[in-house]
Simulated assay, not measured.
Amino acid sequence: MPTRRSTLIHPLVIITAVAASTCYAIAQQPPTPSRVRGTIEAVDGDVLAVKSRSGEDFKLHMGADMRVVGITSISLADIKVGSFIGATTVPGPGGEADAVEVHVFPEDMRGTGEGSRPFDLRPNSTMTNATVAESVVSNDAHTLTVKYKDGEKKVVVSRDTPVVTYVPADKSELKAGAKVIAFIKKQPDGSFEANRVSVGLNGLTPPM
């Protein structure tokens, strides 16, 4: 009986060890990015060569239905009550939500990603897409009360905070030197396909 139990346990030990090794290997793999922020280095047919802000090189295939939108600077005064905006915020020293950047959506993009969620721009940053319900102007900042379907938030926007909006653009803007945010998905063969690209116009680096 002892011998039989030993032969039964031995394969189980091997299976457990292999499973643990596999899980460890998966855990060590870097997560697949959902977006690439960087600079276009070259365009070769339908492939964008992009160097990310962290120095990584990406080859991104442009799908036939890929959407291109331009990003351009606007004034803080262009944020109105009723505007649908996206705001990247970080916790301020007094616990307030300080805006790192604000982008104003055009009407045809109203409702895009509505809500508030963790964001990957900076440590502890949050992206909130919502409608401006109130705007209070002080000497050095605007405090926006924004409302979304699950709640509301106060966002402090300083006069130095970048404010941008989206405008129509096409693939002709995707050229060497352009600053982009490419939204990507990994293909079964390991390559990356870009399904949407936001490009800074007139040398602008998209702040989000």
Rank of each mutant, 00 (worst) to 15 (best):
T32N: 08
H142V: 06
K175Q: 07
I181V: 12
L60D: 02
T88L: 13
P33G: 02
I40D: 00
P206M: 02
Y166S: 13
T72M: 08
A130K: 03
E134G: 05
V36G: 05
L144I: 00
K59L: 13
A97W: 00
A42V: 04
T128K: 09
M66D: 07
H10E: 13
L60V: 12
G113K: 05
L76H: 15
P207I: 02
T128Q: 10
N195C: 01
E152H: 05
K171Y: 10
L201E: 01
K171F: 13
T131W: 11
S34E: 10
P207M: 03
F105A: 05
N139F: 06
L121H: 12
R159N: 12
E134H: 12
T145H: 06
L201K: 04
E107W: 05
P91K: 04
P206C: 05
T126E: 13
K59S: 14
V164W: 00
L48T: 07
R67H: 14
M62W: 12
P188S: 12
R5L: 11
E114P: 00
K80G: 03
T16K: 12
T88D: 10
V132K: 03
L174K: 02
F105H: 11
T16E: 06
S75G: 06
I184G: 09
D170H: 09
A99C: 08
D78Q: 07
G92K: 02
V102G: 02
G113I: 01
G115K: 02
F84G: 02
C23T: 09
V100S: 08
V157D: 00
M208P: 00
Q29M: 12
F105M: 06
V43A: 01
K185A: 13
A17I: 14
S73T: 08
A182H: 03
A182I: 09
T128E: 05
A133N: 13
L174D: 01
D170G: 13
E114C: 00
A87W: 00
V68G: 10
S34H: 10
E101F: 02
L60K: 09
G92S: 08
A194M: 04
H61I: 15
H142G: 01
K171C: 05
P207F: 01
G200L: 02
R37W: 06
M62G: 04
M62L: 15
P106N: 06
S198F: 11
A42S: 13
T7M: 13
P31K: 04
T128H: 10
V69Q: 15
L48W: 07
K153N: 09
H103Q: 07
Q28E: 14
I40E: 00
G203L: 03
V43F: 02
A133K: 12
A97G: 00
F192Q: 08
A19Y: 06
L174V: 03
T145R: 15
I9K: 13
G151L: 06
E114D: 05
Y166D: 07
G55N: 06
S172A: 15
K185V: 04
V50T: 05
T205H: 09
P123I: 04
H142I: 01
K147N: 10
G92C: 06
G200C: 09
T16Y: 07
R122F: 11
H61P: 01
I74W: 01
Y24S: 10
P106K: 02
V157P: 01
Q28T: 13
T126A: 03
P188R: 08
I26W: 14
I26D: 15
V81H: 00
K149N: 10
V69T: 14
D44E: 14
A19L: 14
I181N: 01
L76N: 09
H10N: 07
V163E: 00
P106V: 02
A49L: 15
